[in-house]
Design a protein around this nucleic acid. Structure first.
Lengths: 336, 336
DNA sequence: CTGAAAGCGCTTACAG
DNA sequence: CTGAAAGCGCTTACAG
């Protein structure tokens, strides 16, 4: 038998006061006689009373919970973002309600709807849904912050400046003497993948107008990096730099190159995107997106909007510029 | 102006029925006239009605949410566990309510209490709290599953068999010809750290009675592995195997050894514990704990207990035996 | 098959 | 300073 948790009525009875007084005493209102407060506190303690958060939020129309809807992210990417969010949320007395988003837009919409009435606001990361799909899926009437998602009118957003990141990478490779660069792209339909691809093409056109530039399709996963190298090797094309759309594909490419007996960076330089912790271990040159900060910042902005609803529409997009991290996969060749 | 979300009363009015009928129609009860149901569905749709989960759970005394209280875990460890939990929870229509647990037992207790009334059950991982502290912190009257935590009477638990894991590691090292092993331990007060340390001593006593065995204090973090190697080097003691209490310290040791010009595994073998994804990349021999499975299993058992409360006390402890994963940091020496 | 009513556990004007 | 009452948005016996 679980000893059915004490309710506010039990405390009221035990302290011989009304539930209203219990509520006021426990919530620290000033209009409570010190004696009453003491009695209530004692009763609550002796009964092991813990307020029922659900009832409280129904009454207050405030749950102090934030819904987080993320795609099925891999490893460190996921944990870094969630860690940042959790820290910020916890610091403000909020909880995080998690929901993995399935690729299917319909299921995603349902996941978001199922959060109504249990969260005060929503943080959504939907890089793989198009703008109209996202607009339809997002529940109306609940403050929402978008992370790396297509623009949705009137909602706050956090975005990584993918173009700037790739531009920095390309300039770095060109400066180190690389000429034949190929981009291993992320999955079709993913907004980050698209911007990185476009960024690559734009950077090449701008900084190395005469040079060849090529794109091989990928999917953000390690095997895609390996496959890209296999393709390149098959074709026997001259390549001295691989610009992967994310770290995992870069790592896959790295491994495939080494297995093929090609020296990195002497024969081919390799770069990633994200700077997951693994990148540091593998000496991968990449571009750093501070994921934890991005998550924390999204939460901070959302909470701000929740607690000062009047301030302003709040539909700004905040851009995070990734920073270049040069490591050993792109250092100057030993025999130029 | 957010268009204050429609409530069940709005739908009732719009469909010209009672709220009771709306509730029944929307919840698929059989005792509703088809015409009524159709009208309700149409009204709900046209008003964009989404039930208020908070009100629903107050009424049903069921939130379909599971509270998850974890210590501030690093990287992949965290994401793997949460991923496993989220998958399993999602499959059963449950949400996860996250709360990072601060080391402080008092704050931890508060974090757990703050979940009352918003979750149906709790999953707690508290390797760093002692048994009585945990018992005091755990809220009564809410089904709880413990992961890698001290025993708490009557609650279900999932535990990693740390002793078996270390035993497998030690046997493997001895079999590969190592003799002078040192254990780099985890933080004091952590139950996994303690069991791994004890397991190391026990395994040495059993399998290599005459051999030296030593323990250096650590804290599960990378630097601790580096420091341990520095200590060993300073003392000039003969060591040919380092058994770290987790992967991160093993990685730190690896790096320090290499920087000191010592070949791994020729001069010194190194092993970890956990098998985080990084371990594979670094070729680290370790012992694999399937974190995602552990998380999923904990959720599955909790949900089972929630939905079939009668079945049995449910206070069993389920042990997961980690499996040895041999990689390059322990291969046979080239010059024996 | 349907509706009026009570209830889930809180909070907060309102009246004393 | 205090209590009775209404209300938050639902669900579900209960009576038709």
């Amino acid at each position: 038998m679980k000893p059915a948790s004490a309710t506010i009525r039990d405390v009221a009875r035990h302290a011989a006061v009304s539930v209203a007084s219990v509520s006021r005493a426990l919530n620290g209102h000033s209009n409570v006689h010190p004696d009453t407060r003491a009695r209530v506190l004692a009763s609550a303690k002796s009964l092991g009373y813990v307020p029922h958060a659900g009832a409280r939020s129904l009454s207050l129309a405030r749950s102090h919970a934030i819904g987080v809807v993320l795609p099925d992210l891999h490893g460190e990417f996921f944990s870094e973002i969630v860690r940042g969010m959790d820290r910020e949320a916890g610091a403000h007395g909020y909880h995080l309600l998690l929901s993995n988003m399935h690729a299917d837009a319909e299921l995603a919409a349902q996941a978001m709807r199922s959060m109504r009435g249990r969260v005060d606001g929503l943080i959504v990361m939907a890089p793989q849904i198009d703008a109209t799909g996202l607009d339809e899926a997002l529940p109306a009437g609940i403050p929402t912050m978008l992370i790396n998602s297509p623009d949705s009118t009137g909602r706050g957003a956090m975005r990584v400046d993918n173009r700037a990141g790739i531009d920095a990478i390309v300039r770095h490779l060109l400066a180190s003497g690389r000429r034949a660069l190929v981009h291993v792209a992320g999955p079709a339909g993913n907004i980050d993948a698209r911007e990185r691809r476009e960024g690559f093409l734009a950077a090449m056109a701008r900084h190395a107008p005469g040079q060849p530039s090529r794109v091989i399709e990928g999917n953000f996963r390690e095997e895609a990096g390996e496959r890209a190298v296999a393709t390149l090797l098959d074709e026997g094309e001259a390549v001295d730099g691989i610009v992967a759309a994310n770290d995992m594909m870069a790592l896959g490419a790295l491994q495939a190159l080494r297995e093929a007996g090609l020296d990195v960076p002497d024969a081919v330089a390799v770069t990633g995107f994200d700077d997951v912790p693994l990148a540091r271990y593998m000496g991968l040159t990449t571009v750093r997106v501070h994921l934890a900060d991005m998550g924390a910042r999204a939460v901070a902005r959302l909470i701000d909007a929740l607690e000062h609803p009047s301030d302003r529409p709040g539909g700004d997009t905040e851009w995070l510029t990734p920073t270049l991290v040069v490591r050993t996969t792109t250092t100057e060749r030993t025999d130029p």
